[in-house]
Simulated scan of single mutants.
Amino acid sequence: MCKVNRYEIVGSFLRPEVLKEVRAAFEAKEITQNELTEVENTEIKKLVEKQKAADLNVFSDGEFRRSYWHLDFFWGLNGVEHNVRDQGYLFQGEETRADSARLDGKIAFNPEHPVFEEFSFLTELVPAEKIRHSIPAPAQLHSELVRGDNADKIAEFYDEEEDLYQDIAKAYRETILHLYELGARQIKLDDCTWGMIADENYSKTKYAEGFDLEGLKKLYVRLNNDAIVDLPEDLSITTHVCRGNYHSTWAASGGYEAVGETLFGQENADAFFLEYDDDRSGDFAPLRNLPADKKVVLGLITSKNGQLEDKQTIIDRIKEASQYVSLDRISLSPQCGFASTEEGNILTEEDQWKKLQLVKEITEEIWG
């Protein structure tokens, strides 16, 4: 069952300054976990009220309890530890913090994973069926575990790579099913792996190294699909694909043509949230690979700056996309969240809500 609205959000919101301050105090061991949680609870309540005022049909906790969109989730799985590498992720003109995730055992479901408390608290504020909870995709975890010298740890716990793949899929599936038991009916898998494969420079480098990129595509789609196989029919699984979103910078560039046939044609998500806010994302032609029972959410409004897009330009682009996907299967959203990491993008909170208002106005003009 696909639960996608015309007027959509991706999930993360700019962190309030007070939240950044108390998180820094917690890291410095100046306050307790309970004190941090109390502030998180208060700020999430405020955010929910703002989402209601913006007339959203789906709600998020803004990822206010996380430092990263992906790493915090990885660290919550059994068999995965928090490590710090010599170098962070390299974005256009910036380097991120150097946190990472690597194995310290076999990967397994953790019944005490923080994601369950994230979701449960939000159900106290809005109906569970109106929450879309975002977690990083299984393919993203694999990508992190083989990143640089992280890969050296794999052989300590796995003799066969196949066993690692199966453990990733199993841990994810059990986590998703437990979220379902808690009331979750909408889960989104955030996934930058496809954006990296689509990057021409990345591909050239990997081909030069003798890397099997076609094999990697098959692995990623298999990992993601195995994690979401045989789920309850009333659980909607969507996925979001982008090219990096850190402090208003980006990491990869390239259209979806290189991955469209595999990603759109084979991944068993109900809908695809796609970055399409500038030329780095290419044209809409790869959407021809989208099966007739799938939907697409076009991320045509950038979350990287506060400048409002021209309404007619966005309307024209949606009509252009409808050459490949019927208009009744298209929705609109920002291209990514406003704060994939706690640093946030370079725009104001007022800008953030104006962007969402623009999304709403455009969808009302097109679809009524």
Rank of each mutant, 00 (worst) to 15 (best):
L219K: 14
A101G: 05
A184I: 01
A339E: 00
E94C: 03
I31V: 15
S100E: 03
K217F: 04
H70M: 04
K204G: 00
K304M: 06
K50F: 08
F264T: 04
P232A: 09
E261F: 07
R66W: 02
H82V: 01
R329P: 10
A151D: 09
E200L: 13
A198G: 13
C192F: 11
D234A: 04
S326Y: 04
Y220E: 02
V48W: 09
K354H: 10
Y180M: 03
L347A: 06
T193F: 07
R329H: 02
D270S: 13
V221T: 15
Y246L: 00
G368A: 08
T37K: 15
H133R: 09
K29H: 12
E162P: 04
K295R: 13
I176V: 13
L77S: 02
L358T: 03
E81I: 10
I131L: 06
E365I: 01
K294G: 09
W353I: 03
E161G: 15
F264I: 00
Q352S: 05
F13S: 01
D199G: 02
T238E: 06
P16W: 06
G79T: 01
Y89F: 14
E275H: 07
N34R: 11
L358A: 05
L36D: 08
D152M: 13
E144G: 02
F109C: 08
A137P: 00
I44N: 01
N41G: 00
L77R: 05
A252M: 12
F157T: 03
I197Y: 04
W69P: 01
Y89R: 11
L298M: 11
L308Q: 06
G244E: 00
I315T: 09
S236G: 07
D86H: 13
Q87D: 11
E35Y: 12
R222N: 08
G195V: 14
R317V: 02
H247K: 14
A98Q: 09
Q166M: 09
S340Y: 03
S143H: 10
I346P: 02
T262N: 12
M1H: 14
I197K: 05
V259M: 11
F91T: 06
A101D: 08
Y7D: 14
R102I: 03
L332V: 04
D277M: 10
Q307S: 14
T123C: 14
S67M: 07
K188S: 09
I9T: 08
E209F: 12
A24D: 12
E261K: 15
D279A: 15
L103D: 06
P138R: 11
F119T: 05
V259I: 15
E209Y: 09
E40M: 08
P291L: 10
I154Y: 07
P334Q: 10
G282M: 11
R85D: 07
W367R: 07
G255W: 07
I154H: 06
L327Q: 13
L90G: 03
V115N: 08
V241L: 13
K45A: 12
K295I: 03
D328N: 14
K319N: 13
Y276M: 15
I362T: 05
V48P: 04
D351N: 12
A285G: 03
Q186M: 15
